[in-house]
Computed example of a mutant assay.
Amino acid sequence: MTGTAGVDVIVEAPEWAGVDLEGIAERACTAALTALGLPADRFEIAVLACDDARIAVLNADFRGKPQPTNVLSWPAEEIALPPGQTPALPDPGADGPPYELGDIAIAYQTCAREATEQGKPLADHLGHLLVHAVLHLLGFDHINDADAAHMEGLETRILANMGVADPY
């Protein structure tokens, strides 16, 4: 596996100034894809860096929950799987345009507040949330205990490879 994931960060909220979200996102997305044996440089992910007001609207529109959240993700393809299983991972092929994995939105205020409350660097928390979101884009979920254990185990391993402490 060589190269880094193609991450297109769109900054919509001024609070993100001074945060190297592009670097954090590229590193986290690449780490997640590489840990699963995928060629990171054959994937594209769009990240919207927004504020709590914007993510509350998105959360209401797409999940029926009209309040801010830390991160949302929209996979390019819906994937269903039995509880606790690894989804069939996409094959981007060796040629042609990169595989569009999906979109992520991340809210500054909620992420910054959570990092402070948890006593961890903002960059580490953002890295965790982006790894989490990439796993969602790939079809992983945490709806039930088996799925949550599987996904959290992957996140912990990926974050350890990034030098980030276990968030759980």
Rank of each mutant, 00 (worst) to 15 (best):
V7C: 03
L21Y: 02
V164E: 11
R63P: 00
A165V: 11
A31T: 04
D61R: 14
T34W: 02
H128C: 00
L58Q: 13
K120W: 00
P121Y: 07
A105E: 03
P14V: 08
A88C: 03
I10E: 13
L122V: 04
T4C: 10
G3H: 09
Q118S: 13
P75V: 09
D145G: 01
H142D: 14
G6N: 15
V131L: 06
L122E: 01
G3K: 07
A40E: 10
T2P: 04
G119D: 06
E78L: 10
I104P: 06
Y108S: 02
G6Y: 04
A5K: 07
D41N: 15
E100Q: 12
G153Q: 09
L159S: 03
T156D: 13
A146F: 04
G139S: 08
A94R: 13
V134L: 04
L21M: 07
D147G: 01
A105W: 06
G163T: 05
G119K: 04
G119H: 05
E117G: 00
G6E: 10
E77H: 14
R63E: 08
P87V: 08
A115K: 01
V131G: 02
M151S: 15
R63C: 09
L159C: 08
A31F: 10
A149Y: 02
G139V: 11
P121Q: 01
Q67M: 11
A115V: 08
I158L: 06
P97V: 13
D147L: 03
S73I: 04
W74L: 11
K120D: 00
N161V: 01
G23Y: 03
H150T: 14
T110S: 15
